[in-house]
Write a protein that binds this DNA or RNA. Structure first.
Lengths: 195, 195
DNA sequence: CTTAACTCGAACATAATTGTATAGGATGCG
DNA sequence: CGCATCCTATACAATTATGTTCGAGTTAAG
C-alpha cells in the first residue's frame, strides 16, 4: 500500500522537469496561460500534462514551491550570523530583492490564481529569516522596538515587492531602486534618535 | 452631430446608477464577477447592462473612476495647507488609509482586469497630493532629501495598501495598523538625524 | 525480452461567458 | 397624447478552456 511514492520512471521525471521549467517561463510572461500553452511550451502532450498535474493550479503551486525552495537555498548561503544586524540586514535586503525581482510576474500569477493566503503560506520561511534578524537587531540595541516585529516584516516584503514592480515598469532604474530599498528599510529598522 | 452627450433619460440615469452601485458591491466581494451577476445584482437585464457598458472592463473602469472621484473630494476637504508638513502628512495618511481600507478589493479587481497601468493612471491625482506635501516638507526642512520624491510617494501608497490588506486578513488589528502606518511613514519622511 | 509505465493525438462532453439580435412592453418627455 | 427612448426576456452564435477517454505507439527498467 505504499502510495504513489514509487520512484517514477526517468522518462516521467524528465517530462515533469520540462513542464516545470516551461511553466515558470510561461507564467512569468503571462499569469493566465492555459494548460494547452504550458503543454506546448514544455514540448509535451496536453494529456501528459494532465497526467502529472490535475489542474493548472497544481502546476502553478509546484512551480512556486520549487522556486521558493531555490530562493531559500540561496538565502541560506548568506551567512548573516557573522555580521552585525544592520550590516546583515543590508545584505539580506539586496539578496531578497534580487530574487523577487526575477520572479515578480510569478508572484502575480500565484496571487491571482492561488490567492494571497497560499502566497503568504509559502513565504513563511523567508519571512522567518527576516523576523529572526530583526529580533537579533533589537537584542543588539541597533533596531527600533516601538513597532511590532510582524509589522516590520510585512513592510520589508511589501517594499521589496513594490521595488521590483517599479523597476519592472521602468519608472525607476533597477540599480537605483536597490539602493533606495536598502536605505529605506535599514533606516526604518534602526532606532530613531535612540528610542 | 452633438455626440452622445445628449442628456440621458431619467430612466437610464437610474439604471446606470444602480449598475454602478451594484457593481461596486459585487466587485468588492468577488473581483471576477460576470456580467450576468452584475446585471442581476443591479436588478437590471443583462442586455440593458450591455446597452450602457460594452464590456465588464468598462463597468469596472466606471466604478473605479467614480470611487476615485469621491476619494479625491474627501481628501480635498482636508485643508492640509494650514498645518506644518509633518502634521499634515499624519492627517493625510490617516484619511488615505481609511479610504483605501474601504475599497481594497476593488483595487484588486482593477489590478486584475485593467492592469497595473490603469490603476496607476487613476491614482495620479491622489499621488500628486502626496507628492506636493512631501516637497513642501522638504522646503520647510522637516523632510529628508536623500531619497527621490517619486520613491517616497510610491512607498506611501505601497504601505497604505499593505496595511489595508493586513487589516483585512485579520493578522493585525485595524486600529493599531493605522497607528503603525502613521508612525512608519512620518518617521520615514522626516530627516533622519538632521540630514 | 517482456512488461509496465509513459506518451501521443484526436475526439468528446461539458461548461461558462461573451456579445448580438429580435420583438414587444413600459415610461419619461415634450 | 404620441414618440423616441429605454427596458426586458429569450434565444442564438461563437468562443474558449476544462477535464476525460480511447487506442496505439515508445521507451525505460528488470
Amino acid at each position: 500500500m505504499s502510495p504513489a511514492q514509487r520512484t517514477k520512471r526517468a522518462d516521467a521525471e524528465r517530462s515533469i522537469a520540462a513542464i516545470l521549467d516551461a511553466a515558470l517561463a510561461e507564467f512569468v510572461v503571462n499569469p493566465d496561460v492555459s494548460m494547452s500553452d504550458i503543454a506546448r511550451a514544455a514540448g509535451v502532450g496536453r494529456v501528459t500534462l494532465y497526467g502529472h498535474f490535475p489542474s493548472r493550479e497544481a502546476v502553478l503551486e509546484a512551480v512556486f514551491t520549487r522556486t521558493i525552495e531555490q530562493a531559500e537555498q540561496a538565502l541560506a548561503e548568506l551567512d548573516l550570523d557573522s555580521l552585525p544586524a544592520d550590516r546583515a540586514m543590508a545584505h539580506l535586503i539586496r539578496s531578497s530583492w534580487r530574487i523577487i525581482d526575477q520572479h515578480r510576474r510569478l508572484l502575480v500569477a500565484v496571487n491571482r490564481h492561488l490567492g494571497p493566503e497560499v502566497l503568504r503560506a509559502h513565504h513563511e520561511a523567508p519571512m522567518r529569516r527576516v523576523h529572526g534578524l530583526i529580533e537579533r537587531g533589537r537584542d543588539e540595541g541597533v533596531f527600533r522596538t516601538d513597532l511590532p516585529v510582524e509589522w516590520l516584516v510585512t513592510v520589508f516584503h511589501s517594499l521589496a515587492h513594490t521595488a521590483a514592480i517599479e523597476a519592472d515598469s521602468g519608472r525607476l532604474h533597477p540599480v537605483f531602486v536597490a539602493d533606495y530599498l536598502e536605505i529605506t528599510l535599514v533606516g526604518l529598522f534602526k532606532s530613531p534618535r535612540g528610542l
